[in-house]
Structure formats: structure tokens, C-alpha cells
Design a protein around this nucleic acid. Structure first.
Length: 424
RNA sequence: GGAGAAAUGGCAGAGUGGUCGAAUGCGGCGGUCUUGAAAACCGUUGUCCGCUUACCGGUGGACCGGGGGUUCGAAUCCCUCUUUCUCCGCCA
């Protein structure tokens, strides 16, 4: 959510920049500014009346003390009228504030200068790539066939238990899952991130805080009896730990990592894109989150990129990194790097991480602030997050790329974690 | 799930209708003293929204768990929700 002050001061710039996200902001910004004017004059009106009531009330007190009952009664009557208008005005103010919020939450974050114009995936910009695409042996097959052949992931069984998109990991498949989680967490901790295990369900306030609500509730599983939402990513509980918090500048950067399962309804996604592990309703992910000083957030974004890249390199997977274009970047992000690994049997690039700087967009919504030492005013810090990494597609690529006639070879770095070198 | 108690500033903890944004202590910040530090002493110490201001600042309003009510006036009284604690019950 952009702050009102920012909108007031940067109207033209916002409209121009949001065009990159293919969002026509002119009308909505004008609505917001108009409402904001109304809000301020209403506020002033209310404050003045309130002040008058306060003055009179004090007088009444004094009259009573002096035994001047008649004067007190006269003063009392004056407030009756005022009180009624205060009630009406504050009701009005509340309504204005609500409609401002209603509009504000519809305005996307301003894209960074690096974000290219574009409509869809094909307009994303390649930053760099690495690793070697493997030459697969004769008769190589996609991961869903390998999963069945070696009995490590059971899609049908998950179907029976729950439904499509909820696989059961078995045997070495389950072990590999744990190995990756531990590897990713250990690397994050080495990188200075503090590990947390957050709740997997959040309340409405949290879902609003990170921008899942309003509007995107269709993407989350909802528990109506308690009004909780299953988290679509650890970003939600982790970032919300700092909702309504004032940090001091020395606390920055805050670096948190968390492993959690993630739950996504993925309403409306069907077809061959979703085969096997490519798209699931429940999957595991290690997330990294940082809260950083506005002047250093882009350095931090770069560091997070390097962290994610190093994980993929250590797993020896072919990858590429892209900057998302205006049409592909999320509502809340200023700049996003997508990391894709190449799954050689499907001959497909699979997104395994997306690392974003939200600048102050989330912080404003969360009421997350920080204060410079000796400074009276609070400021909004920048928030960033990234997957490091999402498991299923990493597993898909590992299985497909490392298949040999003898079995699937485990990357060197993981052997300490799995305890085996090959799935056969 | 049942019974009772409670929720106040960064923390601890006073405050039961006006002079309370709120005593006191701790912590934090600034200073005096000291070669330096500690101790002691002095000062200072929240958030949000307006108005004003070149700046320092000044000024109005709101906030004592959330929401509503009573009253000229609410941290204080009433209703309601939430949370926490104690006891009982159940239980991984």
C-alpha cells in the first residue's frame, strides 16, 4: 500500500510509473486525493468541535466547584448540540477513511526503473544464466515417471487421501525432501538468517498485512469456523511478526529464515503445466526475509540473489535469472528476480525462486517502522523476501537431470544430508 | 469445556468520574563529576491524525487490550468481544 503522503507528493510520477505495470492509475489517484482533501477538512472540523467540548467540560467542572449550578446547566446544554454534530462528523470521517483504504489497496506498488515494459513472461529480461544442461541417456523420462519407477513420490495415493496436488513422498523421496530442507536452512543460517518456525495458519489481520487480503482470498485455503487462513508462503507469518512494530535503525537489517509447507488453491490452473511436481496445492519451501534500511535495500536484494544463486549452483543445476517485466511482476513488488532451473526431460524451465524488493509498500501496510538514533520521526523500512528454495521443482529437476541407467545420482553436497548417493 | 481474576507507556507497577498522556521504579538518551569507567546527582523520554512553521518549534485532536454505551466530562462506571493467569476437567 502506498502512503497517502507519497501519493499527495508524487501524483504524476505514480501515474507514469504504474503504466509500466499496465495499470491506469489516473482516475483512482484522483479519487484518493479528493477523498484525502475531504478527510483533512473533516478532521479539522471534528477536532475543533471536540476542542470546544473539552473547554466547556472544564468550565462545567469549575462551576460545580464554585457552586454555580445555574451556569453549569447552561454550559451543559451547549454541549448537547455539539455532541450530536461530533457524532455525525466522526461517522462521516470513518466512512471517508474506509473508502480511502478501499482505493489505496487497489493501487499496485511502483515498479523500479529496471522493470521493463511488457505484457507477459516472454518480455522478462535475462540477467544471467549458469550451469550445464545435461545430456540425458537414451530413454530418459520426466520426473513423474521416475517417481513411480523408484517409488519415491506417490501422486495417486495423495489423490486418495486428499486430492490432486497433494503428493505423498515415500522412501528415499521423503528422505530427499528432508535433506533439501535441512541443506537450505543450514545455508540460510550460515548466511546470517535467524531461523523461526511460524504458525501455518494466520488470522485476517496477517493476511491483510502482507496483501493476500482483500482480493486474493481465492488463492488461500480458509478455515471458516475460526476465520484462519492456511499460509500460501512463510512470508505471511514471518513478515507479520513485524506488524505494528517500531525498530531502531541499529536493528537493521532483520534477517529471518523459515521452513514451512505452503498451501495454495491455485484456482484456475489446469493442464499439462501442472503435471507431477510442477504445480501443487501443498509444497515445502524455505523462505528468506529481510527488513532493511531504505538506502541499503537494493544492495540487500543483490545479496539475496547471490544467496539463492549459490544454492542452485551447489546443487549443480542449470539455471537462469530474469527480471520480471511490468506484466509479470506482482502487485506488491518493486523489483523481482525469478530463478528458473532447467528440467531436462520435460525440456522446461521451472521457476524455483522469486526474490523481491517491496520497498516500503508492505511496511506501510504492516505499520512497520524504524527510527534513526536521535530522530523523532519514524520512517518506513524496506522489506524483501525470496524463496531459498521451493522444493518440488528442485526435486523435479534433480530427478530428471541426474537420471542414469543405474539410478538417480544425488548431488555431492546433499549426500551428507541424505545418507545415500543414488536412488535406485 | 466449567469457575474465578486480570489486561495501563520499552519493562515493572500506581491510579475507581474532572486538575491524568497518566505517579514511582527500572531501562534508554543527554549532562555534571572522573585520566577513563562505575556510583551519585541533574535533565529528558510514546504513537497516530490535523493546523502552523524556511528550520528549531508551536498548537488542536485521538490513543490506558478491541468495539459499543452512560455522562457536561471516562484509564476509572455499564455492555460486549478478545487475550492472559489461577483452579477444575479433557488431552498430543
Amino acid at each position: 500500500m502506498l502512503s497517502l503522503k507519497f501519493i499527495r507528493e508524487n501524483k504524476q510520477k505514480i501515474i507514469e510509473r504504474l503504466a509500466v505495470k499496465n495499470f491506469d492509475a489516473k482516475k483512482i489517484i484522483e479519487n484518493i486525493l479528493e477523498l484525502d482533501d475531504k478527510r483533512r477538512s473533516t478532521q479539522k472540523d471534528l477536532d475543533d468541535k471536540q476542542a470546544e467540548i473539552n473547554t466547556i467540560s472544564k468550565e462545567v467542572g469549575n462551576f460545580f466547584k464554585l457552586g454555580k449550578i445555574d451556569e453549569a446547566d447552561i454550559a451543559k446544554q451547549k454541549t448537547t448540540e455539539l455532541k450530536e454534530s461530533v457524532k455525525a462528523i466522526s461517522q462521516n470521517l470513518k466512512e471517508i477513511e474506509h473508502s480511502i483504504i478501499d482505493f489505496l489497496v487497489q493501487v499496485p506498488n511502483i515498479p523500479h526503473e529496471l522493470v521493463p515494459k511488457g505484457k507477459a513472461e516472454k518480455d522478462n529480461v535475462l540477467v544471467r544464466s549458469g550451469g550445464q544442461k545435461p545430456v540425458l541417456p537414451e530413454g530418459a523420462v520426466p520426473h513423474w515417471d521416475l517417481a513411480k519407477k523408484y517409488d519415491i513420490i506417490d501422486f495417486e495415493l495423495g489423490n486418495k487421501l486428499t486430492g490432486a496436488g497433494f503428493p505423498v513422498y515415500k522412501n528415499k523421496g521423503a528422505k530427499l525432501q528432508r535433506a533439501l530442507i535441512n541443506f537450505f536452512l543450514d545455508e540460510a543460517i550460515k548466511g546470517g538468517y535467524q531461523e523461526v518456525i511460524p504458525p501455518l495458519m494466520v488470522n485476517e489481520d496477517s493476511a491483510f498485512g502482507t496483501g493476500q487480503l482483500p482480493d486474493k482470498e481465492g488463492q488461500m485455503y480458509h478455515i471458516p469456523s475460526d476465520n484462519y487462513y492456511l499460509i500460501p508462503t512463510a512470508e505471511v507469518p514471518v513478515t507479520n511478526m513485524y506488524r505494528n512494530v517500531i525498530l531502531s535503525a541499529e536493528d537493521l537489517p532483520v534477517k529471518i529464515t523459515a521452513y514451512t509447507p505452503c498451501f495454495r488453491r491455485e484456482a484456475g490452473s489446469w493442464g499439462k503445466d501442472v503435471r507431477g511436481l510442477n504445480r501443487l496445492h501443498q509444497f515445502d519451501k524455505v523462505e528468506i526475509v529481510q527488513i532493511q534500511h531504505p538506502e541499503r535495500s537494493y544492495e540487500t536484494l543483490e545479496k539475496m540473489n547471490r544467496h539463492v544463486e549459490s544454492l542452485i549452483q551447489k546443487l549443480d543445476l542449470p539455471y537462469r535469472i530474469q527480471i520480471l517485466c511490468g506484466g509479470d511482476i506482482s502487485f506488491t513488488a518493486s523489483l523481482t528476480y525469478d530463478f528458473e532451473v532447467f528440467a531436462a526431460a520435460q525440456t522446461k524451465w521451472l521457476e524455483v525462486s522469486s526474490v523481491s524488493n517491496f520497498e516500503s509498500f508492505q511496511a506501510n501496510r504492516l505499520k512497520l517502522r524504524f527510527k534513526e538514533k536521535g530522530d523523532k520521526k519514524t520512517r518506513l523500512p524496506h522489506t524483501l523476501n525470496g524463496s531459498a528454495l521451493a522444493l518440488p521443482r528442485i526435486i523435479a529437476a534433480l530427478l530428471e537431470n541426474n537420471q542414469t541407467p543405474a539410478g538417480i545420482k544425488i548431488p555431492e553436497i546433499l549426500i551428507n544430508y541424505t545418507g545415500f548417493e543414488i536412488i535406485n
